[in-house]
Simulated scan of single mutants.
Amino acid sequence: MKTKIHSALFGLSVGDALGVPVEFKSRDYLMQFPVTDMMEYGSHHQPKGTWSDDSSLAFCLAESLSEGYDVNDIGEKFVKWRNEEIWTPHGKVFDIGISTNQAINSIESGIKPILAGGFSEMDNGNGSLMRIIPLVFYIKDLSIEKRFDIIKDVSSITHAHIRSVLSCFIYLEYALNLLNKNDKWQAYKKMQIDVKNFLNSNAICSQREMDKFYRILELKVSDYDVQMLYELKESEIGSGGYVLESLEASLWCVLTSNSYKETVLKAVNLGRDTDTTGAIAGGLAGLLYDYEAIPEKWIDVLARKDDITKLCDNLFSKYG
């Protein structure tokens, strides 16, 4: 039986694998040579169906959660991924983010995982957002206050700045609404209302920090008119490694597409951080359209698909 857990984790890893061969390619290049199917070799010289550190760390999180929630164990799993190469597609780590690597070094040196991630404004890459979706299955029945606290801790293992935390929070609030069978528009509007109410009722961040999310939350900021993210042109959507760009891009791809396939191909063809945009958008699209909507031929070539299936089964037995 394929569940929403299978939909999200396969959705993420297939999107990731579509993007790996063209990571760092420009949008102009991909307009000329768009990704339309699984490719091999390319940027990292990997076989077809190879996923990156995005999926590896999501799988580490999922494996830890299948044994219960323990932030220290999650941190230890990340260390084992880098050092012992668990949850790698072919037994070797071929890509790792600078902030994630530094956080793993900190954990190794004895720093608690929730204090290992970078706290500065420069520490806002997409390395916690890309791996966070398995957490939705653990927090789904908790209060919004408790959800935020847990998301903050899990993001902070590698990315502790409030902007990264809020990005993960917004993303998982949207994912939760999709999990609860809202359509993509109902889910988006409910996320906006719930997040704005929560932030306005709690001293979580400064107004300046909240305003960074004005395009997602549809906020009036200084002299700017309220902008609807889904009405923006592709040229107005970034696709680099900055967490806010990745969040906007993934939501934009979901809201402006009508199938899993369309969503992830649109995400990958934005260029630059292609695997991560594909993964982040793919996790949401998997939840929205279900496992059966993911092209079978893409799943068939996915590295370690049987291991991923077993992981999903284990997580479902715990939180299904």
Rank of each mutant, 00 (worst) to 15 (best):
K4Q: 12
L12R: 01
G15I: 00
V20E: 10
P21V: 09
E23C: 00
S26G: 04
L30I: 02
M31L: 13
Q32R: 09
P34H: 03
D37Y: 12
M38I: 11
G42Y: 09
H44Q: 12
Q46C: 05
P47L: 08
T50S: 12
W51R: 09
L61Y: 01
E63D: 15
D70G: 06
D70N: 13
D70H: 03
N72Y: 06
D73F: 07
K77N: 13
R82W: 08
E84N: 14
W87P: 03
K92C: 10
I104R: 00
N105E: 14
G110I: 12
P113C: 13
P113V: 13
I114Q: 12
M122A: 15
G125T: 08
S128A: 12
F137H: 14
R147I: 13
D149H: 12
I150F: 09
S156L: 02
A160E: 10
Y171M: 05
L172F: 05
E173K: 09
N177W: 01
L178C: 03
N180A: 10
K189S: 15
K190A: 11
I193H: 15
N197K: 15
N197F: 11
N200S: 13
I204L: 05
E218A: 05
Y224P: 10
E231I: 01
L232I: 08
L232V: 08
I237R: 01
G238N: 10
Y242C: 00
E245H: 13
L247E: 03
V254E: 04
L255W: 04
E262S: 11
T263D: 06
D275H: 04
I280P: 03
I280T: 08
G282P: 05
G282I: 05
G286R: 04
A293K: 09
I294D: 00
I299T: 09
V301M: 00
L302C: 08
D306K: 11
K310F: 07
C312F: 02
D313A: 08
N314W: 00
S317E: 15
S317P: 03
G320L: 03
